[in-house]
């Protein structure tokens, strides 16, 4: 039963992720991203990680993709009107892809994974997550928080027309 669901959700996640890239229509792309996230949440549920599954749905599926769609609809982009890539972009994309493939390959061939059975790994409680976030992983959480704050301030500055620019007009 669990195996069937695993293949179902894995197929959904990967298939719709591929469609996100392949789709010409941006709205279709965003909705495929949503499907992919739902599949991922399903995989988390199969691992008994309910908290991760629902946080993923709440934050990414519920808010981030909704904002994507909002922006896409406001911009009203037409499909198929796409410029050819610059050589530099192509080179950067190739390099990035090669790095990713190398990373995954080295992880597969060189890493020693502790394959624990389901009996050995306890389901982490809410409290365990919270404790880790506030002790072991406090620094990454704070750094990400500052990054987001910086991005938010940047958006405020960029979207707000400054007084001097208004007067110059």
């Amino acid at each position: 039963m669990a195996a069937i669901f695993f293949y179902l959700f894995a197929g959904l996640t990967l298939g719709s992720a591929a469609l996100v890239v392949a789709n010409r229509n941006t709205v279709n792309g965003a909705l495929c991203l949503l499907l992919s996230l739902v599949g991922l949440a399903g995989l988390f549920v199969l691992l008994d990680a309910y908290l991760l599954a629902f946080v993923l749905l709440l934050v990414y599926a519920g808010a981030v993709v909704a904002l994507f769609l909002f922006i896409i609809m406001l911009l009203d982009t037409q499909p198929a009107a796409r410029k050819p890539f610059k050589p530099l972009t192509l080179a950067a994309a190739g390099l990035g892809g090669a790095l990713l493939v190398m990373g995954v390959l080295s992880f597969l061939t060189r890493a020693r994974l502790a394959l624990a059975g389901p009996a050995e790994t306890a389901v982490p409680s809410l409290k365990a997550y919270a404790e880790r976030l506030f002790t072991t992983y406090l620094l990454p959480v704070q750094v990400v928080g500052f990054l987001l704050l910086g991005a938010m301030l940047g958006v405020v500055v960029l979207s707000k027309k400054l007084d001097s620019a208004e007067k110059a007009r």
Binding site: L51, L57, A61, G62, A66, F70, L126
Partner: peptide, 20 residues
Amino acid sequence: VDVGILAVFAVASLGVYALI
């Protein structure tokens, strides 16, 4: 499910897609 209110909020937050 032990995540209770979070599950309600998560699924309810997807409801916006129906309107969109």
